[in-house]
Design a protein around this nucleic acid. Structure first.
Lengths: 241, 241
DNA sequence: TTTTGTATTATGTTATACATATAAAGATAT
DNA sequence: ATATCTTTATATGTATAACATAATACAAAA
């Protein structure tokens, strides 16, 4: 007789709260509840499901934590549109992300900047261009004065690009990715600023802006690729565990 | 006497749990706790902060929900690496995302696919190419047989691309974005399949694969842009509210 | 009509007791 | 001495009951 433990499944080890949460999710689905709809009060759920109010509260608290419901005293609880970025944000606040996750996120940001060219060209407005112009001009002036490279301008320019995309989720995403970006930037090895660009010259924010004015998405992409080359160069040579 | 309510600020309206959560976060920071470290038990926190165990539990539950801590009976609680994608995932499961958020996410996916070319070329292996080849061959065969366009192949191919990136976060991200992608795809207006490509011809998966074999990142980007043109075309003409 | 007080109600908080899983120590067998 | 089986202590999980608090509705007063 051959023993095979692959065919035997462990009996589910779910807590009551886990089960209640599943039931709640099912309840929302079956009743086709939408944003703004209110749900029964805790005691009613407790009675209906035959568990204590404590368990119901814990399950509901989970939902509140991920932003699916909101509760108000006396009024009860209503379904809300979850803020998908917010949870991300909270998790990051605790500074518990490992090296690998940080690298992943850093890469993610490079990917986003490379990929959003089409959106920029489709959504840009005259005002946006003017704003960008101001940002670039200010940078040029200050850098002339101080010969000091400031992350501030970096953030202002690239942040504005995300704004141009007119994609709220994307923009908020980058807001949240900024600290990570800074972290990796700060831990940059010495001499990284003397980076040798393969094409010989560096694409500046001014260059990018000009392309945004008169060029097309494709040339913007390649210019951005050059602009980000030092970062790409560093990242692409990291061997992940 | 002129009454002016601008100079009076509302006193903060935080719940006890809110405050406790802040204290906990501070506690982690001050003690410089890292992943794997264990934290005091509920009763100790309760006593130290002078609140009931319930409140502590609710605050800790929030942390557990976003994946910052894990708890085991008798053992206590330990800090864990938060799974940043998981929270995203949970929020989406409740089908409460509004039209605008869905569009944002759909755009995000297009951006990712456009932006990851460099990563693909830096990380691709012989095996990856072989796998992709199998996927494409299978698709070609089945489509010849049935003349039936299947999302299955679409998912297999593009999913594999994400895998190539060797970026776990990115890959998991697209896993989670798939349902949204399908949703938008399913709600595609009739006739979208007869889309007229601006350059006259359609870049197939086979074409992309060949570029991945012998070409470079830049040409891959432009090929991908063509491949995704119907999606871009649709998205870029949506006027957001 | 507007303001102010009052009752009501659902969530927020406290307290206490018990259930349950499990790590750790101790006992037993090999 | 090692392995396996019991026991025990313990921190989280669940239940119950009571009270606090804030927001709402509604009545009373100005």
């Amino acid at each position: 007789m051959k023993s095979n433990l692959d065919n035997i499944t462990p009996l589910e080890n779910l807590s009551l709260v886990d089960k209640v949460e599943m039931r709640l999710k099912e309840y929302f689905k079956v009743n086709n509840l939408k944003i703004g709809d209110s749900i029964p009060k805790e005691l009613e759920f407790a009675e209906a499901l035959g568990v204590s109010r404590t368990v119901i509260r814990e399950a509901l608290l989970r939902l509140r934590t991920i932003g699916v419901i909101e509760s108000k005293k006396r009024k009860g609880m209503v379904l809300t549109q979850p803020d998908i970025v917010q949870n991300f944000e909270k998790a990051i606040e605790y500074n518990l992300l490992g090296e690998e996750a940080l690298i992943d996120i850093f890469e993610l940001r490079l990917i986003l900047e490379m990929g959003m060219a089409d959106l920029l060209f489709a959504r840009k407005t005259e005002e946006d261009i003017e704003d960008l112009d101001k940002i670039v001009s200010k940078q040029e002036k200050e850098e002339n004065d101080t010969t000091f490279f400031s992350l501030k301008h970096e953030i202002a320019f690239h942040g504005k690009l995300y704004e141009l995309s007119n994609n709220t989720t994307l923009k908020r995403f980058q807001d949240l990715l900024l600290p990570v970006f800074n972290y990796v930037h700060d831990n940059m090895p010495e001499g990284a600023k003397d980076f040798k660009y393969s094409k010989g010259e560096f694409v500046t924010h001014r260059d990018l802006l000009n392309i945004l004015k008169n060029g097309d998405a494709q040339s913007f992409r390649e210019a951005m690729r050059n602009h980000l080359e030092p970062h790409f160069d560093r990242i692409l040579h990291i061997v992940k565990s």
